[in-house]
Amino acid sequence: MVTREVIQEVAEGLWRCHFTALGGPCELHLGCDDRRLTQQAAAAVEAETRRIEAKYSRYQPDSVLSQLNARAGLACPIDAETHQLLNFAWLCFQQSDGLFDISSGVLQQAWDFRQPRLPEPQTLQPLLRRIGLERMQLQSDQVQIPADMELDLGGLGKEYAVDRAAAVCQQLGIRSGLIDFGGDIQVLGPKADGSPWLVAVRNPAQPDQPLAGLPVYQGGVASSGNYERGFDLDGRRYCHILNPRTGYPVDYWASVTVVSGSALLAGCLSTIAMLKQATALAWLQQQKQAFLAVTTDGRQHRWPDQPSVE
């Protein structure tokens, strides 16, 4: 495997490594005294990330995911890792009352976010009928989806890759650092001096400006926002987060950021909150995980009250 990660020492014992995978930038900030160990970690993280990309990308025809989709209608044998991911996706579906649905990717066929145009109901309707993860039959060693269903792990894959990258670093003995794959973050442990990492939260109104900095000692941070992809039409924002029942974008929250035990957890909680619209606030509070949510009209909600540094 050709490693493409770039490594530089940005401060004494603090390394920044960078490579591109999963359709975006992947960055590691590692606190480590040993250059060779850092290099080893960066190479191992890149290899693991590419493994996950090759296994679960829906753009690669021989990925496990593409094969599952190609074999839709048929019981397919799966390995333990795929079972765990699909089981996690299933739990997200169940816990979100069907809003978080990895079979809703087919809606992308109706929405082309490069052009500000709404889909025709007659294109949307047949796609909606193909959605519904309750029709997936998942067992520990096999899965069967209906012939018309298509799975897309886009909503979990990157977060999972971040967590796996963190596990790789931890296995090599690296305890201090932060892993950032395009905004999905896992903090391995505090900086060498014991201080927390400051994770910037984008301002959904001005995505290149930080809204707040969250101090994080350990754990995952993920944001879901209407600024990532979408278009404006007649004064309304149409974003890429689509309700699987209506086929239309959600519009209550501009962004939801969650800090939780891992990037995967933070990622699914923030996405479910976006999908839950106005009811998400009470739901988020029940979860007892730190969050910062901004409505489309600019109101901010956060818990705990002072988690951030303005």
Binding site: F88, C92, S96, Q287, Q289
Partner: peptide, 27 residues
């Protein structure tokens, strides 16, 4: 809570998943 359910599932999977699993014991 959703968090309790999901974190229990995540805890069981976030750590290294061996990619070379030889024959596994049938359950």
């Amino acid at each position: 809570t959703a968090f309790a359910v999901l974190s229990a599932a995540a805890a069981s999977m976030a750590l290294p998943v061996a990619d070379a699993q030889a024959e596994a014991r049938p359950d």
